[in-house]
Design a protein around this nucleic acid. Structure first.
Length: 297
DNA sequence: GCCCAGGTGAAGC
DNA sequence: GCTTCACATGGG
């Protein structure tokens, strides 16, 4: 068994793992259990440290340091947020929220499955997918079955019915076709890394089931494009309510505003807005009758 | 029963 | 160029 403890500052592990950027972590007995690559991992975080246990010995922990982005100085990121009241409130309420650095294939496939689904349902779908088609990996001391995220090659060999049986509904043909394009190397998942963000986004959007929003999620959560700004229903409501109250604003306009207003760490700002909206409910609004924020869920 | 969910693609104007 | 609609499935 591998074991290590990292000293950290400003790192809320729980908020990070449940903030809708990743769907594989389960809370058990005060710890977080998941699989990163082929490593079963148990994580435990407190105010000043994150400790990790693995099922097998580990000599090089760089994969975990990279995944958790432990070398990132959050105060630098926060200092680049716009100095407006909404961002101050979100930053204050979501202290220690972080962005992970995920595997591109797992991230891409996961977000293809995310469209018009609640986070708990995305988790259920992905759990089924991993149990049925993922490579088993040595699990923890409780000997729970653990599975790697299924490779593109493995999913490419599935039938659409196989995938639909994982409750993913109309997303099944999108995932299947994308898996085939990746597995056959018609789409190179390493290529976007070296491209400018706009070009990388255009490439991702060519994949079936991938539009602007899912492309931005993969750019941000997997490739680390810090300026990517995914706009889902929550972020859209936040932007409209906070920055364009009682005005009709197109998505195109929202994207343009986001690109101009949130700066080089726009992706982080987006995650703070998203998490704040989902967990803390309503922002203070100077004009309550214009408040259209969704109910707390 | 109803509405909604970390949307996308196709069809209609 | 917009706007509208279908698409599976499950939670509240």
């Amino acid at each position: 068994m591998g074991s290590i403890t990292f000293n950290v500052r400003d790192y809320d592990l729980s908020a990070t793992l449940i903030s809708g950027q990743v769907f594989r972590w389960q809370h058990r007995d005060g710890s977080w259990v998941g699989v990163i690559g082929n490593h079963w991992v148990r994580l435990r975080g407190d105010e000043f440290s994150i400790s990790a246990n693995t099922a097998e010995p580990v000599s090089d922990w760089n994969w975990l340091i990279d995944y958790l982005q432990l070398d990132l100085d959050l105060t630098v990121v926060l200092s680049k947020f716009p100095a407006d009241e909404p961002m101050r409130a979100a930053a204050s309420a979501c202290h220690g929220l972080r962005l992970l650095r995920q595997d591109p294939w797992e991230c891409l496939a996961s977000f293809i499955l995310s469209s018009t689904k609640q986070i708990v349902q995305i988790q259920q779908i992905i759990t089924l997918l991993c149990e049925r088609f993922g490579q088993p990996v040595p699990g923890g001391p409780t000997f729970d079955a653990a599975y790697a995220f299924p490779s593109a090659a493995r999913l490419a060999r599935c039938t659409e019915a196989d995938l639909r049986a994982c409750k993913m509904g109309f997303r099944a043909p999108y995932l299947l076709e994308t898996a085939r394009l990746v597995a056959s190397h018609q789409f190179d998942l390493e290529r976007p890394r070296a491209l400018p963000i706009e070009t990388a986004r255009d490439e991702l959007i060519k994949l079936p089931g991938v539009g602007r929003k899912i492309a931005d999620c993969v750019l941000l959560f997997a490739y680390g494009f810090q300026s990517a700004f995914p706009v889902d229903v929550w972020v859209m409501k936040a932007l409209r309510q906070l920055y364009f109250p009682k005005r009709k604003v197109t998505m195109h306009r929202l994207h343009r505003f986001a690109g101009e207003h949130f700066g080089v760490c726009a992706g982080y700002a987006q995650q703070y807005l998203f998490h704040y909206m989902r967990t803390k409910g309503k922002f203070k609004n100077p004009n309550p009758k214009f408040d259209t924020s969704p109910e707390l869920k």
